[in-house]
Amino acid sequence: MDVKVNILRYNPETDRKGHWEEYILEADPDERILDLLHKVKWFDDGSLAFRRSCAHGVCGSDAMIVNGENMLACQVLVKEVSTPIKIEPIRGLPVIKDLVVNMDSFFDSYKKVMPFLVNDDEPGERERLQSPEDRDRFEDTTKCILCAACTTSCPVFWTADTYVGPAAIVNAHRFVFDSRDNASKQRLEILQDIDGAFRCRTAFNCTTACPRGIQVTKAIEDVKRETLTIN
């Protein structure tokens, strides 16, 4: 079947601002949106820029807006979206070219919440023990692939890009609720800041956007509640 695809193009070397380009592509309904982008790049316009690697939703490279919603282009099939298919870069981060945005501030926010296990106790020669129940408490937030779909769907982030954003809070959650970690208090103090968790207005966009099915809003609520306990 023929599919009409509109892509928001922007090349900083030639364009002053973004503009829509239309492509008519021969496509199979079972193909991924990512396959359509490859068709444009490989057989029509080699300069189209987008990130991708794994092509099955595990590396987090290709978050973009498809028909108004954030998703991974490799995780959605042509038959699941209405045509014409509108594709544009995720919002709130500076566009480098076409569908590629600058991720620096996103990763800076991630690094702010101490996204690593802190435990200076002597661990011994074997593994630390952790019960399946304790392990379960942070299972959901271990799934994050840092794709930025959540953060760039957040209305608070759009207006205040200093807000750490849902992805950073998800990664804080992953450690705050890990029974082996000893730095919850420090992390929660960081998230108490004016640009931390309390900026969240529970819009739920992030939860809808997350391609890993993480209950992002719930994780933020968990963190907010935990923050109250340290004061």
Partner: peptide, 17 residues
């Protein structure tokens, strides 16, 4: 064991291993 000490969230047995 080293990866576990660095925080890798392995699945666990009932006895915590």
């Amino acid at each position: 064991v080293e990866l576990e000490h660095w925080g890798l969230p392995f699945s666990r047995l009932e006895n915590g291993k």
